[in-house]
Computed example of a mutant assay.
Amino acid sequence: MLGIGIIAWIIIGGLAGWIASKIMKTDAQQGILLNIVVGVIGGVIGGFLLKVFGVDVEGAGWIFSFITCLVGACILLAIVKAVTGRRTRV
């Protein structure tokens, strides 16, 4: 059962990281592995922030988990862009 949870984290994290990179316009700089890492770390960030605000994230479902990962990944990419000073061309 643990293996299914890890695979789900990778799939949801990868999708969330990829969509977040499209939203934040960093997709050209990232590959699939970095998208997965950004999405999984984004899930941790999003889950932490929701717990801080008193939202129960346990057992909320796949869609809620995906949205949590997506928002957290966008926050992570915004922080990375601010720290590295990278600007995207439109």
Results as ranks from 00 to 15, higher is better:
Ile67Asn: 02
Leu2Asp: 07
Val44Gly: 06
Gly72Met: 05
Phe48Val: 06
Gly5Cys: 06
Ala60Met: 07
Thr26Ala: 04
Val44Cys: 11
Lys51Met: 07
Gly85Trp: 13
Phe64Gln: 11
Gly39Leu: 00
Ile79Phe: 15
Leu34Pro: 07
Lys81Asn: 14
Ile75Phe: 10
Ile7Leu: 14
Gln29Ile: 09
Leu34Thr: 12
Leu2Arg: 10
Ile67Asp: 11
Ile79Lys: 14
Ile32His: 09
Phe64Gly: 08
Lys22Pro: 05
Lys25Thr: 08
Gln30Ala: 03
Met1Phe: 08
Ile19Leu: 07
Ile4Gln: 13
Gly13Asn: 02
Val80Gln: 15
Arg87Gln: 14
Gly59His: 01
Ala73Thr: 05
Phe53Ser: 12
Thr68Met: 01
Ala20Asp: 07
Val57Lys: 01
Ile32Ser: 07
Ile79Met: 15
Arg86Leu: 13
Lys22Tyr: 12
Ala73Gly: 09
Gly47Cys: 01
Gly13Ile: 00
Phe53Glu: 03
Ile45Leu: 02
Gly42Thr: 00
Gly47Ser: 01
Ile19Val: 07
Ala73Asp: 13
Thr88Gln: 15
Ala8Cys: 10
Trp9Gly: 11
Ala16Asn: 03
Leu33Tyr: 06
Gln30Ile: 01
Ile6Gln: 13
Val80Asp: 15
Thr26Tyr: 12
Ala16Phe: 00
Met24Tyr: 13
Val52Cys: 12
Ile63Arg: 00
Lys25Val: 09
Asn35Cys: 03
Ile36His: 07
Gly47Tyr: 03
Cys69Gly: 01
Arg87Cys: 10
Ala8Met: 11
Val40Leu: 02
Arg86Ser: 12
Gly61Gln: 01
Gly31Lys: 05
Val37Gly: 01
Asp27Glu: 13
Ile41Asp: 05
Phe48Trp: 13
Ser21Gly: 07
Ile79Ser: 11
Trp62Tyr: 10
Asp56Asn: 06
Cys74Glu: 06
Ile63Tyr: 06
Ile10Val: 12
Trp9His: 14
Ile67Cys: 03
Thr26Glu: 02
Trp18Asn: 08
Gly31Val: 01
Ser65Leu: 03
Gly59Lys: 02
Val38Cys: 08
Ala16Cys: 04
Gly43Val: 04
Val52Asn: 11
Gln30Tyr: 09
Phe64Glu: 11
Arg86Phe: 14
Gly42Trp: 02
Phe66Ala: 00
Asp27Arg: 09
Ala60Gly: 07
Ile12Cys: 01
